[in-house]
Each structure stands twice: as structure tokens, then as C-alpha cells.
């Protein structure tokens, strides 16, 4: 699926004066897939169709990312993104859902689970940011106040394309990388991504560390074990801190584990969902 095809599938929710673009498919208990930085919902297009067989899959572009709102003047931190996902689920009438997060999307998922526990009935994090594992150097550089002046949009995208390559275990198709970065090829897109990078704040995961042992939801920690951006020892620590959680180390996979091992990742996710059934097929807030 090209990114243009994926973009055509996107629906829209308006939350106050912001808007969220998202893809929705399938029936069953809601399953929310949250991307990280610097990508967007298109990240999940390789594995989500299989998940729609048993679940109502919803894939938002976090505000500031992809084809969601890229205007100025709103908080793009993972704390604010978690609040936004909470508000968005409420807007859609979804009282609770399974949350799947990757990279900073995992940080959003962890914040949701600890701050809005009633919303999260199952949790899956993949190569997530956590503790003091982030921001990585690349994103720190990108979020520098001078980046907007120093980098043209086309140069920034070229730079990111190169920088993302080590996130994959094997060579990645150029079209896929272009698709991941497509929303950021304009000056507005670039500026929005810079603002997103500037909002990365390790305090927002360290401050919830003490809450992790209090989580009482089925949790799967899935990790491409050769990840250079988010080393697997963070996954080990996470699995130790969250009671009853399980770490699955995925071999021959790096940061973008769902692209390095799509079949295996899908299988692990479906197995986990199968073994930890949703408490209700579909609950509405009414």
C-alpha cells in the first residue's frame, strides 16, 4: 500500500480546535496502534490488516505528526499526546481499549496506562521509549531551535532517511522510507516535526517509573533485540517492573521490529490478545 493509498483511508475527528486523522478498520474490541517519531500511522500498514480480523483497529496520527493537525501553539509532549488519545477515545465513544505503542507511541501508551488506567485494558509496547532511554541524539539535534533555519525541508528529509536506516535490520525499500517521511517534506511539515522533536522530554517517562509496578493489566513487551535506538535492556527492565508482563525478544530485528519481522510480530500480538481476552467485546461510553 502506498502512503497515498493509506492517506485516502484516513478519517478525521475534531477535538476542540485540533483535528486528528486516523484509519479505522475491522470489528471487535478496539485496538489502538500508536506510532513514534518521526513517522506516522503509515508505520502500521504492513501488519494492521491481519489484526482487523478480530479487532476494531484504530490508528491515529498523533497531533503534529502525519496528516493530523500541524498548526502552531499546542503541547506535543507525550503527556499531552496521552491526554489527546484519551479525549479522542472518549470522542469516539470507546471507554477502554487495547493500546499498542512503538517508540514514543510506547511512551504515550505507558502514560495512558499509568495516568488513565480505566482506558487501557491490555498494553503492548514495542521498542518503546521508557525511563531515560530517550531522546536519542538524532532527535535532540533535530529539535534544536536552529534546526528550522539550518535545514531545508528536502535536506531534513534526506537526513532523516539516512538516519532511519539503522533502525531496520535489513535494507528497507526506498518507497517505504519515503512514505514514512512524506508528511514532513514541506516547510510546515518539517517545522511541525521539529516542534515534535523539541517536545521530547525524558522526565515524562522517568516520572511514571514508580507507577509501573502498580499496573494491573496484561502487558506484552515486544522488542527487536538488535535495536540501536532503544536498546533491549530497557525492555528487560520494563518487563521486570510491570507485574505479570512478558518480554519477547525478536531476533534479527531492530527498532522497526514490525517491519523487520512482520509475521512474527503479528503472531506474537495475536497470541497475546488471544490469551488475554478483552473483558468486553465493545463497550461504549454512550
Amino acid at each position: 500500500m502506498t502512503w497515498r493509498d493509506y492517506q485516502r483511508l484516513q478519517l478525521v475527528s475534531r477535538l476542540d480546535d485540533r483535528f486528528v486523522s486516523y484509519v479505522e478498520a475491522g470489528n471487535g474490541p478496539p485496538l489502538i496502534l500508536i506510532h513514534g517519531i518521526p513517522v506516522w500511522g503509515y508505520l502500521w500498514h504492513g501488519i494492521y490488516p491481519e489484526l482487523t480480523r478480530t479487532h476494531r483497529v484504530l490508528i491515529p496520527d498523533l497531533p503534529g505528526f502525519g496528516f493530523s493537525d500541524k498548526a502552531d501553539c499546542f503541547d506535543r509532549s507525550i503527556a499531552a499526546q496521552a491526554q489527546m488519545v484519551d479525549a479522542w477515545l472518549g470522542h469516539l465513544g470507546i471507554s477502554h481499549a487495547t493500546i499498542v505503542g512503538h517508540d514514543i507511541g510506547g511512551g504515550v501508551a505507558l502514560r495512558l496506562a499509568t495516568r488513565f488506567p480505566e482506558r487501557v485494558e491490555r498494553l503492548i509496547v514495542m521498542n518503546t521509549v521508557c525511563y531515560d532511554s530517550w531522546p536519542i541524539e538524532l532527535m535532540l539535534q533535530f529539535g534544536h531551535p536552529e534546526a528550522h533555519r539550518k535545514l531545508s525541508a528536502s535536506f531534513a528529509v534526506r537526513l532523516l532517511r539516512q538516519a532511519l536506516k539503522p533502525g531496520f535490520a535489513s535494507s528497507i525499500h526506498r518507497d517505504l522510507l519515503e512514505g514514512f517521511l512524506a508528511p514532513y517534506t514541506t516547510e510546515v511539515g518539517k517545522l511541525s516535526l521539529i516542534r515534535n522533536a523539541a517536545a521530547l522530554n525524558t522526565n515524562l517517562t522517568t516520572e511514571i517509573t514508580h507507577l509501573l509496578p502498580g499496573l494491573r493489566i496484561p502487558t506484552l513487551v515486544l522488542w527487536g533485540e538488535d535495536d540501536r535506538f532503544q536498546p533491549v535492556h530497557y525492555g528487560e527492565r520494563l518487563a521486570k517492573d510491570i507485574p505479570g508482563s512478558r518480554l519477547i525478544r525478536v531476533k534479527d530485528a531492530r527498532h522497526f521490529v514490525m517491519w523487520d519481522q512482520p509475521t512474527l510480530v503479528t503472531k506474537h500480538v495475536l497470541d497475546f490478545l488471544d490469551k488475554n481476552p478483552s473483558i468486553s467485546a465493545h463497550t461504549s461510553l454512550g
Binding site: D17, K70, A71, D72, A153, S154, T185, T186, E187, V188, G189, S192
Partner: peptide
Amino acid sequence: GVPRGMYPMEMID
């Protein structure tokens, strides 16, 4: 100031 809810003036090269 830019009115609330105004879309950014995004454009291609």
C-alpha cells in the same frame, strides 16, 4: 494573531 483552528499555510515546492 492567527485565528484558532486556521489550517497552516502548507505548500509544496
